[in-house]
Amino acid sequence: MLKKIFEVIQGIYPKGDPFVIQHWNTYVKNPSLFTSIKNNMISDPLKFKNKGAVYAQRKDKAQENYQFVFISILEDDNVLVVGKTSFWSNRLINGTRDSDEDSTFGDSIKPYNIYRDTESARKVISHYNDNSIDIDDKVTTVIIIPIDVSDFSTEEYKHKNNSADTYVEEVETMIGDSLLNNGINILNRYSHRY
């Protein structure tokens, strides 16, 4: 299954260098464990390439923005969701550390057990036909597709839609549609379109 997904990704976004994180539920249940992995991903030239758009509320608060498309996969190899999210570097442009970014990795690290009313959580419950399951235990693998947004430098605030966001959303939609067109079912079928 992973091989087929990688082929689809390469056909849509060949420069994305997708990679797989196994045991994703471990990080969802304890985000602080993710800090070292996140630091490795940022510094690895084959992954995020140290590129990102700069978002700034003030010039001294600016920091790199790493945007990516993610594909969450359940323990039984079913694709749950194709989504787009981002995180910011731990270092501000002025050299100080932003500790708020230590363990964050955007929406892909959202604990479904806490947000059981989301569309994706409901799809997992329905898939296993069990309202009492530990949803986070079921999401075991995540594929990360880094999207190069280095051409979209901006001083817009965090969490404000801009041209970098729009570009990554377009890639997300193309990847999700291509997975479906290649016979790979997505439980949250249209997650990549909104």
Rank of each mutant, 00 (worst) to 15 (best):
M1E: 02
L2N: 06
L2E: 10
K3A: 15
K3W: 03
K4I: 12
K4F: 11
E7V: 03
V8W: 12
V8E: 06
I9Q: 12
I9K: 14
G11Y: 04
I12V: 10
K15V: 04
P18I: 06
V20Y: 01
Q22W: 12
Q22G: 00
H23W: 11
T26K: 13
V28W: 10
L33F: 09
K38C: 02
N40Q: 14
N40P: 13
M41L: 13
I42E: 06
I42G: 06
S43C: 07
P45Q: 15
L46Q: 15
K47L: 14
K47I: 11
F48R: 06
K49I: 00
N50M: 04
K51L: 10
V54K: 02
V54W: 05
Y55P: 12
A56Y: 04
A56T: 12
A56G: 09
Q57P: 01
R58I: 14
D60W: 09
A62H: 10
E64K: 09
N65K: 07
Y66L: 10
Y66W: 14
Q67G: 07
F68G: 11
D77C: 05
V79Q: 05
L80R: 05
L80V: 15
V81F: 14
V81M: 03
V82S: 04
V82N: 00
K84A: 07
T85G: 02
S86K: 09
F87P: 02
F87W: 02
W88D: 09
W88K: 05
R91H: 11
R91K: 05
I93Q: 01
G95H: 13
T96W: 13
R97S: 01
D98Q: 02
E101W: 04
E101V: 02
E101G: 14
G106W: 02
G106E: 03
S108G: 10
I109K: 05
K110M: 10
N113F: 15
R116A: 12
S120G: 09
I125M: 14
H127C: 03
D130C: 11
N131I: 08
S132I: 07
D134H: 08
I135L: 14
I135D: 04
D137T: 08
V139M: 02
T140M: 08
T140G: 12
T141Q: 05
V142W: 06
V142N: 02
I145Q: 01
I145R: 12
P146I: 09
V149S: 00
V149I: 06
V149M: 02
S150R: 04
S150K: 01
T154V: 02
T154H: 00
E155A: 14
E155F: 05
H159T: 03
H159S: 07
N161P: 00
N162R: 01
N162Y: 04
S163T: 15
A164F: 06
D165I: 08
D165Y: 06
D165W: 10
Y167Q: 09
Y167I: 07
V168C: 07
E169C: 11
E170H: 06
E170W: 05
V171T: 01
V171Q: 13
E172A: 08
I175L: 04
G176E: 04
G176Y: 00
L179K: 00
L180R: 01
L180V: 11
L180E: 00
N181L: 04
N182D: 07
G183F: 04
N185R: 09
N185E: 10
I186D: 11
I186L: 11
I186E: 13
R189N: 14
S191A: 01
S191L: 03
H192W: 01
H192R: 08
